[in-house]
Design a protein around this nucleic acid. Sequence first.
DNA 1: GAATGTTGTGCAATATCGTGCAGTAACTTG
DNA 2: CAAGTTACTGCACGATATTGCACAACATTC
Lengths: 253, 253
Amino acid sequence: MLTMERKALILDRLQKEQRIVAKDLSQQLGLSEDTIRRDLRELAGEGLLQRVHGGALPASKALADLPSRRKISAEDKTAIAKAAAAMARNGQVIFLDGGTSTVAVARAISMQLHATVVTHSPDIAVALLEHPNIEIELIGGRIYKHSNVAVGAAASEGISHIRADIFFMGVTGVHPDYGLTTGDREEAAIKRAISRQSAETIVLASKEKLGAVSAYDIVGVDEIDGLIVEKSCSNDLLKPYQTRGISITRAHA
Amino acid sequence: MLTMERKALILDRLQKEQRIVAKDLSQQLGLSEDTIRRDLRELAGEGLLQRVHGGALPASKALADLPSRRKISAEDKTAIAKAAAAMARNGQVIFLDGGTSTVAVARAISMQLHATVVTHSPDIAVALLEHPNIEIELIGGRIYKHSNVAVGAAASEGISHIRADIFFMGVTGVHPDYGLTTGDREEAAIKRAISRQSAETIVLASKEKLGAVSAYDIVGVDEIDGLIVEKSCSNDLLKPYQTRGISITRAHA
DNA sequence: GAATGTTGTGCAATATCGTGCAGTAACTTG
DNA sequence: CAAGTTACTGCACGATATTGCACAACATTC
């Protein structure tokens, strides 16, 4: 196993799991703890992670990482969320994906809207409790803790019994050639299943997602119907999608 | 468990619960009280919290003067929750009902416990996210907003595919003759279904529930296996259940 | 003021860390 | 092809950090 590979893998895991234990890593990779520690030391030297006794934590600020990331693009995110929420019509069945972007959509949904929201995210279900006219349908399954959504066979089964009018999907990568991608295999499978059960699929794409590619593909760009981006998005980035008949919505704050 | 993680978790809980007790924390995290106290001391040194005899309070505000009434009823509830959480064993499949009592159980579950928790409550699922060794299985269905649990045909279907070792049930009425009752028809049906799929059914009964009767019956007293009550419960109230072979657990704060 | 529970400190056991050293493999150089 | 160079990895050992226990001091309650 190459050094570079190891380091990449360490950083990858660190991002997903928020913590790394030197001993565990050495066992799982079949290497001595010394090697792992050396890697950690070097990565810490490059400022890519923060060492603590027993392992390592993400670079920026331990667990403060998530809140800060939320704040940074909070304005754009709520703008996108509002634009998505505005697409919903009375009487529709709306499928809401899991993730911070879609929780924002849930919050942005009008108290006046009479509709059914289907979701496999407990967070979304909780966020929608206070909406008096929204019927909530929760998809069950094994909870995938990294992103807090239901996955697995039970979730797929639940999805297969529902047909939605519109699906608001969060992704980590949107690319003209490679399509929609995300960083986890199970999540990709679930998103694909939902998209197939929905008449329309709308993708929420904050700036950094456009042109990005993640490990697991969900569906091709031809299978989605709309893209919601922030206002400051360049036309060049969006052309490949427009020419394929995908409706673009620019979210104005 | 890493030191930094512990501290982050302590601060996190402090923000949520406004008050933490060193003893409880040590039990849930599976560490000695000394370690917790050391952490509290260090965090207090950094001005991140304020120590008091028995535990700690958030740093800045004068939240110490919260209504004492709220604390008292909360104490009994957490006592019951702790007693319930202590019943769980490694490797078990545990069904957790929805409701404030059972969310407290979720929070009281030890970080050391390796088990699967099945629930039809999004709140429980979210509460258990931080437990590293708990596998969460969420039951889907239409969300009944009054109590925030999944109900209906989809929920029944999901429950029918799972067998649990132990079921912690919340109710609104426990009566020797009328059995276990609750105020909603759909919830009663779900609780009954879960009870049938579980080897043991344990009922969480705060003081005001004993002897009370609500509109819809769940199961008779003969179909439950255990009752957890607070310490100040009179023996007379409990006799009818003991004579029927139901194990009584008195929760001591 | 006695009983109980909580706290601080010294101490020992354990786990983790950093460094020096040696062996191996891939690559370079003459 | 042989020798040297470099990078990588694992082992050993002393240094440091963390944790749990014991006991005395202190606070709280009745």
